[in-house]
Design a protein around this nucleic acid. Sequence first.
DNA 1: CGGATTTGTTCCGCTGAATGGAACGTTTCG
DNA 2: CGAAACGTTCCATTCAGCGGAACAAATCCG
Lengths: 271, 271
Amino acid sequence: MPENGGASVQTIDRAASVLRVLASGPSEGLRLADVTAAVGLGKATAHRLLHGLLDVGFVELDTASKRYALGYELFVLGAAARRFQIVDMARPALARLAAGTGDTVYLSVRDGDQALCVDRSTGHYPIRTLTLDVGDRRPLGVGAGSLALLAFQDEAEIARILRDDHAARSPFERFAADRLRDMIRITRATGHAFNDGYIVGAMAAVGVPVLDETGKAVAALSIAAIRERMQEARRAELAEALRSEADRLSRMLATNRPDETGAEQTREELS
Amino acid sequence: MPENGGASVQTIDRAASVLRVLASGPSEGLRLADVTAAVGLGKATAHRLLHGLLDVGFVELDTASKRYALGYELFVLGAAARRFQIVDMARPALARLAAGTGDTVYLSVRDGDQALCVDRSTGHYPIRTLTLDVGDRRPLGVGAGSLALLAFQDEAEIARILRDDHAARSPFERFAADRLRDMIRITRATGHAFNDGYIVGAMAAVGVPVLDETGKAVAALSIAAIRERMQEARRAELAEALRSEADRLSRMLATNRPDETGAEQTREELS
DNA sequence: CGGATTTGTTCCGCTGAATGGAACGTTTCG
DNA sequence: CGAAACGTTCCATTCAGCGGAACAAATCCG
């Protein structure tokens, strides 16, 4: 029984590959031949998949140039993935934090028992500390943002994760269950998570949760810098800056208003 | 040979149904049973599809609550459908126009040989004229926004569409090829399209193109109102307001900067 | 301009991927 | 605690998807 690549449904797997190829291609779209080459399938197969995706609106075909591109339905579905709306909402906050501190700022959300980095913004400070890429995952609890997410979950949830996820955390030796329990306590007491070089020796990071109405963390903002830039006093200031933006986001989530861009109000012209 | 519903690839069609069900459900996600009921498939089938989608990251499963929701990969793909980025960019413009005029404002993009309405904003004027829903399509040329899109395409393209798309336009008797040719000429001369009750008698609309660097229309802004609110003078004012926002959008597309939210600049805190 | 080549589309017989009924666990609820 | 609903796994059957090949259309080039 040959291992096929981890997909449980072949067609879904292949269709997803096709979509990803289109996503990474130019916005004008790709020709059938390009798609065929990139996904490594016969042209008949690629053609059939593309037209299947065309039927459901995930792909669009410019009949003149015969170029395939991602379609409107996919855009709609992406926008309907509401958990991630926070990325758009938080973009200005990340930019302000990066500009204000000079360091690298991350936005993470909880995804199952992992923290998923969904956005990043880089400040001007010359030594850049890119420990996480957008799309990267960490076990819950490992790293400042991830720890902030874990510390503000339900008690039962935390207990389960500490108990079950040993395997996932094992590559990070400083994050065993008993050490994590202490960290969670401190995080809750101070309101922010602190990672003092536990993953990469020279690097430290602060993280704060973004809470929903029920007080559960749905996202985390964090800042990473070399340890010299993370001593007591500065750390407190960073935590404070993070907290202020995180609160703003919490309020935005609660009211579901995007951001006060509406400052510029235009008066009535004709009625 | 029973008609199955128009899908050329069954699995893609079914998977798309599953995703749409998840999209229309609550953001906490849906249980397997809910999905099963909504798509009308056996639970074994629904389960397999969901796990196939899980493998490619289009769906996420909260293992504690056993709820399925749209996943991060779908969000990423949606964001990669760059043609539609303009929706986010244009939202403030639509809001300003709706507030400033009181009427209904539409954003359309070209999709093949159709105009696709991708966003709408409603003003306060009591008589609302909702001729188009978001997601609706019209043949290119039919309606103010659609006409603005058509008029600013390549010559060859326009010729082909006028020649080939009779069938698509036939439900709209006032938009035959020869009449359209005149309309296009006028639209180009004045810089805006005008639909003086050609679709729905009591309704009129103005539309302007959003041009890319090459001068081709990639989108259109339009305003619809009852004919009384669309006389000569007001029409000119509306066209002017649309034009100004459309130009702004063109510039945004060219530079690919989102919007000048960055008004509030935070000063350096520590470096 | 016409022949060669590359690209796109359709066809069709074969096959294994997807199917779904059923049986087995697991959770939920009264 | 027992019953009902829900989630997961299994497996024989079959039809959906497969892909080689033939055909058609567009593109290149001498």
